[in-house]
Design a protein around this nucleic acid. Sequence first.
DNA 1: GACCGTTGCCAACACCCGTTGGCAAACACT
DNA 2: AGTGTTTGCCAACGGGTGTTGGCAACGGTC
Lengths: 193, 193
Amino acid sequence: MTPSAPSTQPRRSDTTRAAILRAARERFAADGYERATIRAIAADAQIDPSMVMRYYGSKEGLFAAAAEFDLRLPDLTSVPPARLGEVLVRHFLARWEGDETLVALLRAASTNPGAAERMRGIFADQLTAAVATFGGDPALTARRAGLVASQILGLAFTRYIVRLPPMVDTPPDDLVSWIAPTLQRYLTGTPPG
Amino acid sequence: MTPSAPSTQPRRSDTTRAAILRAARERFAADGYERATIRAIAADAQIDPSMVMRYYGSKEGLFAAAAEFDLRLPDLTSVPPARLGEVLVRHFLARWEGDETLVALLRAASTNPGAAERMRGIFADQLTAAVATFGGDPALTARRAGLVASQILGLAFTRYIVRLPPMVDTPPDDLVSWIAPTLQRYLTGTPPG
DNA sequence: GACCGTTGCCAACACCCGTTGGCAAACACT
DNA sequence: AGTGTTTGCCAACGGGTGTTGGCAACGGTC
């Protein structure tokens, strides 16, 4: 049984656990939740499928462990207010390309309620909190964060999931130049109407 | 066998075919491609699962028929150039709320390669063509269309799939006000850099 | 060396899936 | 009335799924 105390002694099976998690992230990112089978993940990790069950309880539990994620948003108060948009797009692009966990989460969120719930949590909590740090009308922060999420997730969806050719071919720097002003306005622009 | 000539005499089974298609769209939109089972769709349409196979060949064939879709983009040349963004957001929002086909396609595109391919076709063909109608640098039209798609699909993804609370709660008119300037710049703005 | 928890594999269970073939009733047409 | 086609259902097949229990090998502890 998994001990309840956090960070106990290292176990001999830690390498296996890590191999499972890595294979799970790959499969979930490539195939989505339902098409990524425990058997395939176990084969990638070169262990028996029953090991996955022992260490993670169930497929849902494995996904929950594999989709653990932190946006690692930088401290926005130390960023020149006029460059907030640029910093954010650049950060998200780098975060997305360097870690397939977010792609796994994005793919799975379309069909798996738990994944959607986690996505909601990440963007509602972490992003909204970051937006709230630099003041502004509190009644609007949630909406601003939502709009930012819509453009960021749309970028990821078209570039990494659907793979629209223009979005795949455009170099990251060009994407930043085009999209930064959008986020800038969502974050600091005066509300329309 | 399905006759090759288009629009032959109406068949007695047309109502069944339509019922299957309607149920399929609902299920695909609600559950995605893999979780929407033929058995469930048949149960919704109150017929036997084997009927689905007879009329649509396979699950892929059924999805292809259910995901037949036209953006019905208006003629953009008759729109005041300064209001292009507003017209587009409003059109997409209405199109999305009134027809669950697009939601089905969006959900399925995350995990089903065929669905992703069709999504690529719709946005690459129809949207790019519409963007091309009002001139501008031809080398940039694909990129402009891709950027528009990223914001539109991000809006749909956060509002209808992940259901981020701020995106769900914001009234359509407010969404139009916020997002229209984004599309306007992607469509007609001068390229950055 | 004896003991006990850990790690791993094998075989199997129960279930659900897409898909198929055959058969009865309903219909259309002469 | 008789014939051929269409519509529909039933039962089943083959395969893949998540999940479980038991059993051998290994590791550290006394």
